[in-house]
Design a protein around this nucleic acid. Sequence first.
DNA 1: CTGCTTTTGTCAACCGGTTGCCAAAAATTG
DNA 2: CAATTTTTGGCAACCGGTTGACAAAAGCAG
Lengths: 352, 352
Amino acid sequence: MTEPKTPDAATPADPAKKHGRDGKSNATIYDIARIAGVNASTVSRALSKPGRVSPKTQKLIEDAAAELNYHVNPFARALPTGKTNTFGLIVADITNPTFFDIIRGAETTATERDYTLVLAESAESPATELTAARRLMATVDGLILASPRMDDDNIRALARDKPVVVINREVEGVPCVVPDVHKGLSEAVRSLAGNGHRRIAYVAGPPQSWMSERRWEGVQAACEWSRLEAVRLESTKPTVDGGRQTARDVRASGATAVLTYNDLLAIGLMQELQAAGITVPDQISIVGFDDIFGADFTTPPLTTVRSPLGECGAGAATRLLDLLHGTGEPAGTLSVETELVLRGSSGRILSA
Amino acid sequence: MTEPKTPDAATPADPAKKHGRDGKSNATIYDIARIAGVNASTVSRALSKPGRVSPKTQKLIEDAAAELNYHVNPFARALPTGKTNTFGLIVADITNPTFFDIIRGAETTATERDYTLVLAESAESPATELTAARRLMATVDGLILASPRMDDDNIRALARDKPVVVINREVEGVPCVVPDVHKGLSEAVRSLAGNGHRRIAYVAGPPQSWMSERRWEGVQAACEWSRLEAVRLESTKPTVDGGRQTARDVRASGATAVLTYNDLLAIGLMQELQAAGITVPDQISIVGFDDIFGADFTTPPLTTVRSPLGECGAGAATRLLDLLHGTGEPAGTLSVETELVLRGSSGRILSA
DNA sequence: CTGCTTTTGTCAACCGGTTGCCAAAAATTG
DNA sequence: CAATTTTTGGCAACCGGTTGACAAAAGCAG
């Protein structure tokens, strides 16, 4: 049984002696030390660096820990090491279904790697996002930003503090996971070209959205290849209502097929056009983006370019955890492929 | 400038002297103490118990803290106090849109009250849920369980450790937030009765779902009042696919109106009936429950009994935070009202 | 068997805050 | 002005782990 070498007032009291362990107080390494007959530092080493103690001592300590139903106090461990086995995920809008598979993917990886996910949202505001990020940084080991709205410099500044991974945007000097829009868009435009469409409208997303620009560039490149005409229309917001509001512009554009920045715009557009007596896809084809929850509820169900959002979330979490464990790439972009999901909202145009 | 009274080896070194504060090291209360010319314990008091130091000293310390861009280390604070200003939320299925607004409501309240939300999911498994709960309990101040799948005894055991609030279920001895199904269901049944329906089918949710039983009881009570016939049908799972699979039973039941355990079942049912050439609502009325994201994407848009899920989330978070601050009710149920949202999927039956 | 090297457990300082207790200073009362 | 009470800042122990340094024990080579 260990005794303090110099039991005068200046020597820290044995905490286990101090606390009665009756009732619901949880066991500490001092309790284990007492039962196992070793020093608390030996217990700490046994639990966090198993090879650093002898097998015999290791077994004594593990048995005592099991007997006491010991669980490490995460604050006590975090204070000297700074490690909490948590990471943060900030999404732009928690009710936007684009993010739910991202969250699901990140959560799945977190659980597999014995980490806890902490969720926050930015409400589409760069300032709120930065505030949430700084606040999370105090307690988490690393951070994932999904469709971040803050500028690149702020993202890099955060990444100087702790590892950061970005989803749906490329930031120089920071590791990113980005859907490769080209494959899915190429498939979409090829499908529309094959169905006889000649003029395609792209309904853009928020002006500050990096991904909306990439998608527009993808649409242009694919249309150029298929020798189709591409026209760009703006939307006021990336929501169902925003899609409704673009219906008039879409009609006026003369396009026979529409590709939208996201599924919500496509769904709103479809609803408004149908309310105006226009038949989808006979009179106009509509293709959305992301394949969110509910995209197949519409009549006809929405053709869309699926972003593998679960893979994005899981991929970002894996990159972050690899960085935390010293095995990751500190910069560069991981691309995940998009693909066309053909449903009923796109097809051959039937009436001129 | 404070000096240690006895600067021998046994006296703890001044940590500020120890650390060079160059570069990215963050300021601590010892740095503030040095600048303000007070003891670190005075700084701690000034920052966490402002009235306990004199106004003059308070200002010195606040000015120094601002100058150093000081932020409290949450682990250091949590170690002696056990407080982290976080709470956990466990949902059954993170991609089930029922939880979107619950999460949003909880997150909004968290932000307003200067707390951080930690999200986890149980994947509909009681064992996984209990594991996640125990793990979260180590670091959060309290916990919200949304549609929990574990049994009442386990919930009460968790609540003995730290405050717990339950959503969508009543547990004796634990504070709960539950939608009051009666108002919304009464409105729904009244509406159907007014439209001439006489026989109503209820498509139930998971066998272990407390809420499904309450909804069935609500349907029965409302039908009894309106002198309608109520028949109960089982589903294999509470999903769109589960709804599709009940279409045959619904047809066979002879009911002219269907109320489902949730919107997903209603949407699947509608899709399958429409695929069979049955017109909604002319030949059969369909009413869902919860008013989830996407419920109005269908054609016709889904009539549903709206659970105010955002209010549930916010209400649960408020109850939890009130408990944490000693002002809350330690048990009992907070009811939030449901209401009928009439859309196009229910109406007068046109053909016998 | 001796000298050298490696292993292993202990000591105690530390991480960055909180807080009970105490004494000095300030304020109040008679 | 003196005695008493209240206020305020400092001391140091503490929260529950981690870990560098050190010394004793164990193992190995000559």
